Amino acid sequence: MSDTVPSLYRGRFAPSPTGRLHAGSLVAALGSWLLARHHDGTWLVRVDDLDPPREVPGVAQQQLATLAAFGLVSDEPVIWQSKRHDAYADALARLLDDGSAFECRCSRSDLAAVGGIHRTCVASDRTRPPAVRLRVPDGTRIAFHDGLQGEVVQDVDREVGDVVLRRADGYWAYQLAVVVDDAAQGITDIVRGADLLDSTPRQILLQRALGVPTPQYLHLPLIVDAQGEKLSKSMAALPIDDDAPLPALRAAWEVLGQPPGATAGLSTVDAVLQAMTREFRPDRLPKVSSVTFAAAHNKGVAGAV
């Protein structure tokens, strides 16, 4: 397979149904939507529902309803990862067959002495159900250019180790599912929060192992609270209000570094999004890894969440 992506821009937003969408979610969704529109491309929504123990019943539908209330609707039918087990199994079988992946019975406690970084199997219980890991050779270094954060380099062998693809409890790991689905959907550009920047090198490594294209990446600043905590882990992560989308849309627009006057006087979601599409400039995106919740509060996000 080619290691280059098609020229037609295809982006996506892929929330996990672990809670209602909050201000940080909206910034990531709006940012990815705006970049897709800026490039006359396609914007997709995918539900990353592969971790049942962490999922909240009914939240996935609530997330889709919230996106619709904000005018952010997938250009193609929504994909649910929970319906794609066969695709992940096929990819895993290929990696096992060619030796790129291997079974591992090491527990977290087995790897505690090495900081959780797996370089060789040291399982104390050989009867434990196995996980499956991607083999990361010594000296594996991945470098890529992020569209906002610049040059990123990671020594995957030393900083991450052999990557889990299927967990010991049988659930698919995020890294495998996201790579398989991005390739299947023809995603050319991945726009998401900077909390996932560290995951990108291992995804690139897995893309190479599977022979699928590597998209372009752009990691937006992460919205954090005054203590520097990601909103999904913070009491500040109150859900945004589906019944009053305009204040939150305008706040997210400003957090993305865009001029507040662009939507002045507009009173409908459609009109605001049309204005944002016209006025959006990627070169205004803030080149920082995070924005504090206090700063977002000053821009009105707190009043909208």
Rank of each mutant, 00 (worst) to 15 (best):
L95P: 03
L95D: 02
L96W: 11
L96I: 14
L96F: 13
D97V: 12
D97N: 13
D97H: 15
D98V: 11
D98C: 15
G99V: 12
G99K: 08
G99H: 15
S100H: 08
A101G: 10
F102D: 02
F102W: 10
E103A: 15
C104F: 03
R105G: 07
R105T: 13
R105V: 10
C106Q: 07
S107D: 10
S107W: 03
S107R: 03
R108N: 11
S109N: 14
S109G: 08
D110C: 11
D110S: 10
D110G: 14
D110P: 06
D110T: 07
D110Y: 09
L111N: 07
A112H: 11
A113P: 10
A113F: 11
V114E: 12
V114T: 10
G116K: 07
I117A: 02
R119V: 12
R119T: 14
T120R: 14
T120S: 11
C121R: 13
C121S: 15
A123I: 10
A123H: 06
S124D: 12
S124W: 11
S124Y: 07
D125F: 06
T127R: 14
R128D: 00
P129F: 05
P129N: 07
P129R: 13
P130H: 11
P130C: 12
A131P: 02
L134W: 02
L134N: 00
R135A: 08
V136P: 01
V136E: 00
D138L: 11
D138N: 09
G139Q: 03
G139E: 04
T140C: 10
T140N: 06
F144Q: 06
H145C: 15
L148V: 05
L148P: 06
L148Q: 02
Q149D: 11
G150T: 07
G150C: 09
G150V: 08
G150D: 13
V152S: 05
V152C: 09
V152K: 03
V153M: 07
D155A: 08
D155F: 05
D155C: 04
V156C: 01
V156E: 00
V156H: 01
D157C: 03
R158L: 08
R158S: 04
V160C: 04
V160P: 00
G161H: 01
G161L: 01
G161M: 01
G161R: 00
G161E: 01
D162M: 01
V163A: 01
V163S: 01
